[in-house]
């Protein structure tokens, strides 16, 4: 049975924790709004890029010898996993679910006899994968100092991936990130970057097919595609990083919300037992006084 003083101490410490989680929740909410705005603002560019690439790839369909970034190297022996996570913890299962997905993927590839290389963006992913796949991690990008993810950050990562690809370091590149659905839900997602997976949106494809036939290309389709595909890699990474940033804040917000609620429950429980103990002590003292008086 803890003493009254113990209970008092525990209540005040839980109260302090609750204040912290509450503050973190509010900070996350403010950051989430910003991150969401950034993600939304970036959407038009990525969408247009997708459309143009879809058009171009249709125009090139059936022709032989497309750029390697699109058709791949023809092999799939070496896989590069680009794992994008957050820089900070305390955001529920956000980081671990991305890491788990990457880990499962890597284990499967290794079981199939493929070579796996990993590039981490964000410290938490690296921490999670280091123990099991330490020797596979070939590069690591630290985004700790970055307050608001700009296109240049994504561009740096994209540039590195392209360098590796040109050096023949891998055949297939897959990006792991978390898709931001809403504040409560983030969906860990894989996206194949190289060779580019271009999904033509059905409606767009139909709408575009009329005008697409008579496009004039400057320079030639193939050169254009070669110019655009590397850029597309950066754009896709940028989009993933922004989704991640929004998802991280959303996950942190809901994690901290439930932490605050749990702390509240705990304070209620502790206060209850504190009051009980206090009343028990008063009763005990009264009994002692009364029985003392009766004995006289």
């Amino acid at each position: 049975m803890p003493s009254l003083k113990d209970l008092r101490n525990r209540i005040s410490s839980v109260k302090a924790t609750q204040k912290i989680t509450k503050a973190m929740q509010m900070v996350a909410a403010a950051k989430l709004r910003k991150a969401q705005e950034a993600a939304e603002a970036a959407r038009p560019y990525a969408e247009r890029m997708d459309n143009v690439l879809a058009n171009l790839s249709q125009a090139l369909d059936g022709q032989e010898g497309g750029p390697e970034l699109m058709v791949g190297t023809g092999k799939s022996d070496v896989h590069l996993l680009l794992v994008a996570t957050a820089e900070r913890g305390l955001c529920g299962g956000f980081n671990s679910s991305i890491a788990r997905m990457a880990r499962n993927h890597a284990t499967k590839l290794i079981a199939d006899g493929k070579t796996v290389k990993i590039v981490c963006v964000g410290r938490k992913g690296q921490d999670a994968l280091k123990r099991q796949f330490g020797s596979h991690i070939i590069d690591f990008f630290n985004m700790r100092e970055v307050r608001q993810i700009g296109f240049t950050n994504a561009h740096d990562v994209g540039q590195r991936v392209l360098e590796l690809f040109e050096a023949g370091e891998f055949d297939v590149c897959t990006l792991f990130y978390s898709q931001f659905k809403n504040v409560m839900t983030q969906i860990p997602t894989t996206l194949q970057l190289i060779p580019a997976s271009i999904e033509a949106n059905e409606d767009d494809a139909v709408a575009a097919s009329g005008s697409q036939a008579c496009y004039e290309y400057e320079p030639e389709e193939k050169d254009l595609l070669e110019e655009l595909l590397p850029r597309n890699v950066s754009v896709q990474i940028f989009r993933a990083l922004l989704e991640n940033a929004a998802g991280e804040q959303g996950a942190r917000m809901s994690a901290m919300d439930s932490a605050t609620r749990n702390a509240g429950d705990m304070i209620d429980d502790l206060t209850m037992s504190y009051n009980r103990a206090r009343q028990a002590q008063i009763t005990k003292e009264l009994i002692e006084i009364i029985s003392g008086a009766e004995a006289l």
């Binding site: 005008s211 008579c214 496009y215 004039e216 290309y217 400057e218 320079p219 110019e227 655009l228």
Partner: peptide, 14 residues
């Protein structure tokens, strides 16, 4: 350089 006015022919250029 090229100048685009309304109803320009479809072009895609870097």
């Amino acid at each position: 350089e090229f100048t685009v006015l309304v109803r320009h022919a479809p072009v895609l250029s870097t």
